[in-house]
Structure formats: C-alpha cells, structure tokens
Write a protein that binds this DNA or RNA. Structure first.
Lengths: 188, 188
DNA sequence: ACCTGAACACCGTTCAAGT
DNA sequence: ACCTGAACACCGTTCAAGT
C-alpha cells in the first residue's frame, strides 16, 4: 500500500532541503527516502542513480536563483553577472558549491552557467577562447566559493578558529585575461 | 599471529599503487587492507581516518615529482614552474588530480604547492595578494587538470567519445593578473 | 506510475584482546 | 608496535512483486 506518492519535483525539492539542513554527507538515498516516507528503492523510479539525483539538485539550486542575461550589456559585465549568479545561487544552500562543482566536473549537470559564459565571451568576440575561457572562469568561481563555503561552515561549526582571511571575496584585486582582454569578475 | 608487518610508508606506497591501478573509487580501507595482507582495522594504527590516509597519498604524489624552486628566476617563471610541477605530479597517477584537489580543499594535505606559490608571488612583490593569488592559481591548475584527467580517463574507458576539445592544456592563451602583473601559467 | 520487501555486495570506524 | 576478530551503524543498487 502506497502511503505516499512523490513525483520527481517533490524528490528534488526534498533533496535540496535535506542538503541545506544536514549537509551533503547526510544526503543518502536511504535518508532521503526516509524523509519522504518511502523506501530507498522507490527513488530509483525517478532517477537511475544517486549521481543523477545530485545533478538534478545542482540544476535546481542554480534555477532557484533566477538569472536572465542582459544581452545589451558589455560582454565583460555579462561575464561578471553570470559569475555573480553562480556565486549567489551556490552560497544560498549548504554545500551548494560542492554539489554544483561535482555535477559540473562529471558533466552530469550544472551546464547552464557554462553555456551562459560561452555566450557572453562570444559576444565579446573571444570566439576561439570562449569554451576554455568559460571552463576556466567556472573553475575560478566554483573553486573559490567551495573554499569560502568549506571554511565558513567549518568555522561556524567551531572546527577551525576563523583567522582573518585575505579576502572572502573571490574577486579581490584579481582578474582573468583572455587574449589580452581583461575580465574582471568582481561581481560582489 | 602477525602474518605481515607494515610500516606507515609501506601503507602509503600501497595506497598510491592501488589508486593508480584501480582508481579512487576502489581505494577503500578494506581493499587496501586486503592488498597489504591485513585487516582494515590494522590501518588505523597508522592513520586516524581515511581522510588522513588520502592526505598522505596526496603529499606522496607531490613528493614523488621532486621539485626544487629556482630562487634566481624571475617570479613569474617561478610561479609557472610550481604550476608545472603540480600538473606533472598529479597527471602521473590515476585520479591524482582529485586526490590532491580534495586534500587541498579540506586543508588536510597538499600544502607544499600553496606555500611554494606564496613564496614565488612574494618574491615578485605581490605581498598583499600572495595568499589569495596562490589559492586562485591552485584552483586554476587543479580545476583544469581534474577536468583533463576525468575526460581523458572517461574517453580511454570508452564512456565518452572524445570530441576535439579546445586545448587540452590548461594554459592556452590564458593568464591571470595579480594587481596588474600578468602571470602566464603556460607551463607546458 | 509509484511503491514494498528483501536481498547483494559493500562501506568507515571502534575496541578489547592478542603477539 | 602492529595485528586480529567481531561488532556497529551504515552505504548504493537491483528486482520481483504489489496497488
């Protein structure tokens, strides 16, 4: 007898919720199932694997921070806007950075920021470097945000005494050069 | 009765070996114990946790690609040399990038490259930006190398058709600017 | 379409006890 | 100093069967 009936979006929403409340380490199929009032095996009706579930979670996190590119803006401002979007989206949920970075690294999700960056870079005429530029910027942003988030969380958990760190912001005095064009990513 | 007696370096060496032959996913405490002819619990005599073991593996991988900084070289060349060292070290072992990146992210290991980069950046006069610059460069290098390694391995396993990618090298036409000073990281 | 029940093949970690 | 034996509290995934 089916006590509960969950649809795919319910599962994703609950997963985001568990992630935010208990962290990535506690987001297991069994735990998520229990939280939904369902056996773990029931989740495999919606997702072929945990990896696929986590990719959906990553996409959901990015989607929730709604973003629409301003195509009339200068290309470097467009790039900065995308970076800012990713940063905001990911910082809004516990372990958001790691989830998105992993999904992106495995190529299973989090493709929207990559495509937005490619578009922005192309609009700046950096045609040949758009793809590698987008990947670099994403590593740049995600790397720093994961850093930030890890240390922030560790500090708030009392595991690390939060010594003053040189710039919690990923952009302080830093830029990236693509083919001679300087891109400032100080979105914040 | 002790059939085998392993010292700490033996354990690390075997772990590197298992990592390279079977990948990070197969490097479990149980598997490593079996490979050493020992129960998994015996490993906890040498390491307090798997995380600590993996940190030691990361350090070992970096150590095996012996590196000595040329303090007479221009600072940007020093930076490039460190990046090249990390890249070479990590590419020499299966999943080396992920192991080192993770140890670095958790702050449990892989500190040598960070310190080398800070020193190189300081020697260039970028005092206030040395720490954040070092972290940025590391994210930059490790991010790209993990990318490379993941796709390379996936391709060689036949999981992905290796479409032509824009620059397998992390440095193609890219640089990082620290306070106006352009750092080229095209180590290769 | 969604769920149960039961199993399979694993994990990391602890700890008293052995040599 | 290093190892065993046994346990604890978990994992992801599969699959026939139910409604």
């Amino acid at each position: 007898m089916a006590l509960v009936r969950n649809h795919r979006p319910d599962v994703v929403a609950r997963a985001v919720d568990v992630l935010d409340r208990h962290g990535l380490g506690d987001l297991s199929m069994r735990r998520l199932g229990a939280e939904l009032g369902v056996r773990p095996s029931a989740l495999y009706h919606h997702f072929p694997s945990k990896q696929a579930l986590l990719a959906a979670v990553a996409d959901e996190i990015l989607l929730r921070a709604r973003f629409e590119p301003d195509l009339t803006a200068p290309w470097d401002e467009q790039v900065a806007a995308v970076c800012g979007w990713v940063r905001d989206a990911v910082l809004a949920y516990r372990d958001g950075g790691e989830v998105v970075a992993t999904a992106y690294a495995f190529g299973t999700g989090a493709m929207a920021p990559y495509e937005a960056l490619v578009a922005a870079l192309r609009s700046g005429g950096a045609d040949g470097l758009a793809e590698i530029g987008a990947r670099t910027l994403l590593h740049f942003v995600l790397g720093h945000v994961v850093d930030e988030q890890t240390h922030l969380q560790a500090a708030s958990a009392g595991a690390i005494d939060d010594a003053p760190r040189a710039g919690g912001d990923f952009a302080v005095g830093l830029g990236i050069v693509l083919d001679g064009l300087r891109v400032r990513v100080d979105a914040r």
